[in-house]
Design a protein around this nucleic acid. Structure first.
Lengths: 155, 155
DNA sequence: ATAATATTAGTCAACATTAGTCAAGAACAC
DNA sequence: GTGTTCTTGACTAATGTTGACTAATATTAT
């Protein structure tokens, strides 16, 4: 049933480690070799699956002894956390990134599963579809920010 | 029963799988090839025969390892009620009228207070404000309908 | 110390691989 | 005949893969 591409597999591998450890440190070339992909694909995986919206912070160093370190971010108290999400949303946000925001809210305990699902219904493609992508991304951002601001005092 | 068109046949094929499994995941091109139709016909079949009214939720992903996943969901017993609200919302809805819709949902027990508040945050003036009143009313309608459709089933 | 070289990771654009949309015409039902 | 449903394909969009080139850091040679 699971029809996975290699990026998904690498993502799973890293998240499996992160499930038991606060952080994971890799050598890019080594992982690339292990999964038989070009090194830059590791950057792609990180860029698309380990963003701050997803709750990860990435640090790296080049040169001899270089590394990429992925750290699962500790959720601050709710207010700072919501601030950081508001910043992350900004003036406009893609559908993909907005999913990460909702997931982060859920994982932080700011919303429960049914609340998350309602928010997802409010920002999905059926809900926001004016025909102008940029307009859609702006509306999506405004809705998310309105909800985030509501969550500031509700919770 | 005799003269089934190809869309009906593809529908049967998928529903046969769904009779034994909660969900089915396909590669569009593969199924199209199997039934000797163009890929977009699969979209047609899904759009006309696997709607939320029928009790199906569809998700998909493009790119390498892409898929279309059809999930059979358990519909709740509030369908007529939801239908009536969807009709009431229509193509566009004023802010004032949308408050009534949310109130109805709350009073019917379809949502609790914090869910209601999230929905209100999603459709209030801060959230939806393009400068064009008619556009705002259309967006508000789409968001509400998307949420209403979500409330049809257990998730 | 400084320069040269080696060893890492980062960026970006081209290409590949999927699914989605839309509108025109065909087939069908009445 | 008319209106609806079905079929098709051209075009679009999203996502993934690859490799050439760049940048940063460490190590070695002088």
């Amino acid at each position: 049933m699971e029809n996975q591409n290699i990026s998904d597999i690498i993502e799973s591998y890293l998240k499996q480690i992160l499930a038991e450890s606060q952080q994971v440190e890799i050598r890019r070339a080594e992982i690339a070799n292990q999964f038989n992909v070009v090194p830059s694909q590791i950057n792609y995986v990180i860029k698309t699956r380990f963003t701050i919206q997803d709750g990860y912070v990435v640090q790296s160093k080049r040169g001899g002894g270089g590394y990429i370190r992925i750290e699962k971010v500790k959720l601050l108290d709710n207010l700072d956390f919501i601030d950081s999400l508001v910043t992350a949303v900004g003036d406009r946000i893609s559908r993909h990134d907005s999913l990460s925001v909702v997931r982060s809210l859920f994982e932080a305990g700011a919303i429960n599963r049914s609340e998350a699902n309602i928010i997802l219904a409010a920002i999905n493609k059926d809900a926001i579809n004016t025909g102008d992508r940029q307009a859609d991304e702006q509306i999506r951002a405004q809705i998310l920010i309105s909800i985030l601001n509501h969550l500031r005092y509700e919770s």
